[in-house]
């Protein structure tokens, strides 16, 4: 298997993305075709399968957007967050409250949630991005736990531990009917999620994405080259928070219920594991990772008589050994082409 790992001996960057500028146009075309075909297949889902699959897929897509936004932080930016459920949950609450108090218009909820996720991340990120590695991991965990506790305690606004209930079904256009059918809801979620993935991929390939990757690989060097590494990392943190908030609003669209558990350690850990399973830095890998985690937890696990965690645990162990670079390591072999080192 060809390696694009380079010869770096650093430990925290096993899966290096190959989405940099060195990749040629020729390599990108079949991939675009594949992505378009996949998107078409996803659009066609409600015509083919019953509504339960559409609901499951909606959940997967919302969670996948969360995972991909986290991959922007972890894989592209080298900032391993164990608290990404916080902006996600903030977005979910803001979307739910907007829906209840203001409007059933989904795009308004989406924007409100994304802004809330960004504002939250900006407030805490100002301090958090100053630390690195394991300390970053633990500080994000602490902030998320504090946010979860706040959601638990602030019951006039959040409904406390009983959660935020009575969220109306969304409308997509003003005056349109509420989207009660799983299929229509799914199309909305799919559209927003696809837009979100596209934007995150674009950000990752932009000049900003390149400097972010540079900082991940060697922060001191980038600093000596004159980059404000703080500003780049902070921007990435806020952007990831905005997309996580947007993912939170999609989650609310589907579940129409928000509880403090949505900001909890489990969501953060599952999102991080989805990123690792997918292969860090390969944004599309995180989508597959998210699909696997949600599928096992919600679909298979619910029917295993309480042995869901066992299956999840075995899956994690198997992935670590069998897919050392996550799903992204399972690339179609293209002969005659070497990845740039």
């Amino acid at each position: 298997m060809t390696s694009d790992l380079g010869t770096s001996s650093r430990t925290d960057q096993a899966a290096r993305p190959d989405t940099g500028p060195a990749r040629g146009r020729a390599g990108r075309a079949p991939r675009l075709v594949l992505a378009a075909a996949l998107l078409l297949a996803l659009v066609a889902v409600p015509f083919v399968v019953p509504s339960d699959a559409a609901n499951l897929l909606s959940r997967i897509l919302a969670f996948a957007l969360l995972a991909v936004s986290l991959d922007l932080l972890v894989g592209v930016g080298g900032m391993p967050s164990l608290g990404h459920a916080a902006p996600f949950g903030v977005g979910a609450y803001v979307a739910g409250i907007t829906a209840k108090e203001l409007t059933a218009l989904a795009p308004v909820q989406l924007v409100a949630a994304a802004v809330a996720g960004a504002v939250f991340s900006a407030l805490v990120g100002w301090l958090i991005v100053r630390v690195r590695g394991t300390y970053f991991l633990m500080l994000t965990l602490a902030v998320a736990e504090l946010a979860r506790t706040a959601a638990d305690q602030w019951d006039q606004v959040t409904g406390g531990s009983n959660g935020l209930v009575g969220i109306p079904a969304i409308q997509v256009v003003p005056g349109g009917g509420p989207l009660l059918l799983a299929g229509f809801r799914y199309w909305y979620v799919l559209a927003v999620a696809a837009l979100g993935f596209g934007l995150i991929v674009a950000i990752s390939r932009s000049a900003f994405g390149r400097s972010l990757r540079g900082i991940r690989d060697n922060e001191d060097r980038m600093a000596s080259l004159g980059y404000s590494t703080f500003r780049v990392k902070f921007t990435a943190f806020v952007l990831a928070g905005a997309f996580a908030g947007a993912a939170g609003s999609l989650w609310t669209v589907q579940s129409r219920f928000v509880s403090p558990a949505d900001l909890g350690f489990n969501v953060s850990a599952m999102a991080l594991l989805a990123v690792v399973i997918g292969g860090r830095g390969r944004l599309w890998g995180a989508i597959l990772g998210a699909a696997l985690v949600i599928f096992i937890r919600d679909e298979v696990g619910a029917q295993l008589g309480g042995r869901g965690p066992l299956l999840l645990g075995i899956t994690f162990i198997a992935v670590v050994y069998l897919l050392p670079r996550g799903f992204a390591g399972l690339r179609l072999h293209r002969p005659g082409r070497k990845d740039p080192a």
Binding site: S255, A261, D298
Partner: peptide, 8 residues
Amino acid sequence: SPDTGVPA
């Protein structure tokens, strides 16, 4: 918690 109960 609800994050497993609601989907179930």
